[in-house]
Amino acid sequence: MDAHATSAEPERSHPSVGVYVRIGLVLFVLTALEVGLYEFTYGGHAGPAGAAIQPFFVPLLLLLSAGKFALVAMFYMHLKQDHRLFTGVFVFPLIIATVLILGLVVLEAYHFAFARAG
């Protein structure tokens, strides 16, 4: 990751206003999907199909949320066009953060299960 490869910051061509607005719409739709999924599974409109979705609810929701996260980071925060170094400085901690959350949840779940079972 030798940063000298590009000695000067290239004139960044940030996306056009149209792209920003379209991304904004997609974000809005994804949020609506999240809430809709919740309503469909657990909310007032939940039916028998909702019960069938329940096992997939959490993964689906996390997927949608990850999608929104990626869109904002890539387009609004310009990671897609900017220097790769910025992506590295953001994504490396992000990976460690994710592993940390997973690790802690797994370790604590084991503790709680083992301890409370006596």
Binding site: I96, V99, L100, L107, Y110, F114
Partner: peptide, 18 residues
């Protein structure tokens, strides 16, 4: 360094896998 923290906690009884 970020993946070894619980070696300070072996005596807490984290179970064989951990």
């Amino acid at each position: 360094a970020f993946g070894v923290w619980a070696h300070h906690m072996f005596a807490t009884g984290m179970g064989p896998i951990a």
